[in-house]
Amino acid sequence: MADHRDEGRPPAPVAGYLRRHREQLLPVLFVLPALAYVGYFAFYPAIDAVVLSFQTPILSFTFYNYQANVNLGLYTWIANTFWLTLGALALQFGLALGIASIVNRNFRGKRIFATIAILPIGISTVVAGYAFSTIFPGSGGGYAASVLSVVGYHETIYWLQTPAKALLAVIIADSWKNTALVVIILVAGYASIPSTLYQAAAIDGAGPLRQFRYVTLPGIRGFIVIALLIRGAQEFNIFQLALEMIGQYPQLLTVQIYVLYTSGEGIYLASAVASVLLGIVSVFILVVLLLGTRQ
């Protein structure tokens, strides 16, 4: 109604814009609660962590929190976190590509296999962590030894003896728990590839391996990027499983944040490590997005 009355003179620019785009702008109101929520509960604390990392207990500016952590071994923590992430992503994507390829075929028992593949999602991380610390105990033996002795390997492996072994144990545990998510995403990717592409490739004489290389992989590229983003970020952030299985041997960024926070070293030192982790995750997200969307 108001539109007719206003016809004679030009409406105020803002009011006019709002009126003309009413249908598009109203939905913004529906999104606002979510934005307010994540703003207050996610972005504000994240920025707060960065602010705290440059503060002293009397609120003056300092680089001390970073310097102290460098002296404590920050670079080693970064390296350990990096290797863990790399190993876990490699294992999860290798396994997931295999499982997704299997699920993508038709065979007897497919539904049972699909169900088994998804079960680990239902097991609580804390419980899985305990199960895996009895499979790979630092004191040697454990269920890994039980399995290895079945296949004839009887030497004792001390899983917390070297950083590499400890990280490997966490990588296996984490991959067991989380590969299913990658499988779910990749299966959606497989389904998005039109079957005519495979037929064309088969007519051109491409075998299963070349079909995988030239049809499947390019077809699921976008899905791989998403899965890589989700899992990669979660891998850098891995905390509970590592805390439970290996504690501080070797140290990861997340576990060190927790240790610094709870050991009386205070929120400031912990925030410096938290900011480093935040920076690494941000760079990771940017790099994957840039590489993944380039073409």
């Binding site: 604390p45 983003l229 926070y261 938290a274 935040l278 997200i285």
Partner: peptide, 9 residues
């Protein structure tokens, strides 16, 4: 993708 522990503290 934000680390829980970074937000929690």
């Amino acid at each position: 993708m934000l680390p829980s522990i970074v937000i929690a503290i």
